[in-house]
Amino acid sequence: MSTPMPDAAMLPLHKELLDRFQRGFPLSSTPYLDIARELGVEEADVLDALRFLQEASVISRIGPVFNHKRAGSSTLAAMSVPEDELDYVAELVNAYKEVNHNYAREHHYNLWFVVTASDDLHLKRTLNEISDVAGYPILNLPMEKAYHIDLSFKLDWS
């Protein structure tokens, strides 16, 4: 993983963009100009700042964040895999285009991945197939309710 970006390398405009636009990015024909006006800077400043943040991987992208649950059918799946097989099994799991996140975690259940499919049936089939191919049962933990939907994250600037 990349090393942290020191706060000192970030300009006030960078921090302001991160604080203000983790949601509510304008849907208008000139979104960057709208942001610039709101922040009292030039459009080119906003574009430069966002380009910098993107190139430095401080933001992964600018764009819509989809609700996996409502864009199709999805679930969180966990598997318990012997440590020495973890990489091999992870590779099998990752090969599925329906798997978009996969984390190794320190636990008896050590492989945690999110599976998203176009509908419930496709999801079920995919889970069964992954379990068969990997050779381990899957703990299927679909979201029943979200208590924090927005996911904009307050950053503490030191």
Partner: peptide, 20 residues
Amino acid sequence: MLDAGVIRRIAAVPNHYRLG
């Protein structure tokens, strides 16, 4: 899609790792 909740938000998506 925003109205339907398919899109949660349109955002500059931060990379938590990179921010420390």
